[in-house]
């Protein structure tokens, strides 16, 4: 095992974490401002990926597909907020779970209806298709570096948006006291729609960016959705900072677990068993970490509300 290998795995962990951050930022924002559990967040991720892939395929350009994917996810988010979510804000979490679970079914089959049964093709743009050499004879895909950069930009952007703009002030006010901001004359309906669409757009961005790395297919949002929930719960619901820290933690734990657990176990058991046991443990690792953190800090690492 070389230093380059270790470096490459660390980068992988960070990149995976950044992707999770894009997913969970929207989720945690929506929960913080509207108190809404949205299981259909993964569906918006899927919408971003499908529209990006379809437009890229039709026009031949990823750079047209990407904004189209973002716009479609934001539009789908706004539509969902206006048609469904709006009626659920004053309900308990259970009704929200059932409603958004139904939305998953509707989105999945709807997507399959519109885009067909086979996975779609989406590849990284030529501009970003190179490999950056690492020390030793390693290399790291430029595209993954670009994803990390996007994540940093989004994190800074969200920070500025929330701390420096009028919209951000309303969001903070909404998190602190939902009734109050209505009284202050803020158009709460529009605010909620905007926040939800913003969250959807971030999910769509994650979907479109990741779609170029993997397979654009129905159901792609579900595994990511669970991970995003793990992230926002570890980070403290409603906290963007918490989401960032937790996303990186989950990304690193998952990646390093997969990379090193099977090797470590060969020290204590035969290689054939170590492979399967290590892989089983690696797939459980993030849930173990989450349970441990919640047992220690029941409101996550950065509780947003006191």
């Amino acid at each position: 095992m070389s230093a380059a290998f270790l470096l490459e795995q660390l980068l992988n962990g960070v990149q995976f974490g950044v992707m999770l951050f894009l997913m969970s930022a929207g989720l945690t924002l929506v929960f913080g401002v509207m108190g809404l559990i949205n299981l259909a967040h993964g569906s918006l991720y899927m919408v971003g990926a499908f529209v990006c892939a379809w437009v890229s395929g039709a026009t031949g350009s990823f750079w047209l597909g990407l904004p189209a994917g973002l716009a479609a996810a934001a539009a789908a988010g706004a539509a969902v907020e206006i048609l469904v979510m709006r009626r659920l804000y004053d309900r308990d979490h259970l009704d929200q779970v059932l409603a958004t679970f139904s939305l998953i079914l509707i989105f999945s089959e709807g997507t399959r209806w519109i885009f067909g049964n086979q996975p779609l093709y989406l590849n990284i743009p030529p501009l970003l298709s190179g490999v950056i050499p690492l020390p030793g004879d390693g290399g790291y895909p430029l595209y993954r570096v670009a994803i990390i950069a996007v994540g940093i930009v989004v994190a800074i952007g969200l920070y500025l948006l929330i701390s420096r703009t009028r919209l951000g002030m309303q969001i903070r006010a909404g998190e602190a006291d939902r009734e109050m901001i209505g009284a202050l004359g803020v158009d709460i309906k529009t605010l909620y729609t905007v926040v939800f669409a913003l969250g959807a757009m971030l999910a769509g961005a994650a979907g479109a960016l990741v779609g170029a790395l993997q397979s654009v297919q129905v159901g792609m949002g579900e595994s990511v959705l669970i991970l995003a929930f793990v992230v926002i719960v570890i980070g403290g619901i409603g906290s963007i900072k918490g989401a960032l820290v937790a996303a990186l933690l989950v990304g690193l734990v998952d990646t390093l677990g997969r990379a090193f657990l099977p090797r470590l176990l060969t020290l204590v058991m035969p290689a054939s068993d170590a492979g399967t046991t290590g892989s089983a443990l690696a797939s459980m690792a993030i849930y173990l970490v989450m349970a441990a953190i919640l047992a220690w800090r029941p409101k996550g690492l950065f509780p947003a509300h006191g």
Partner: peptide, 28 residues
């Protein structure tokens, strides 16, 4: 362990435990 938490945290920690059992069964 889970009852130390409440609200959405409880929802998600119970999910986490179920996922652990799921992956255990999958690779056992």
């Amino acid at each position: 362990i889970s009852l130390r938490t409440s609200g959405v945290y409880f929802i998600m920690i119970t999910l986490a435990f179920a996922q652990m059992f799921y992956y255990l069964a999958l690779s056992f």
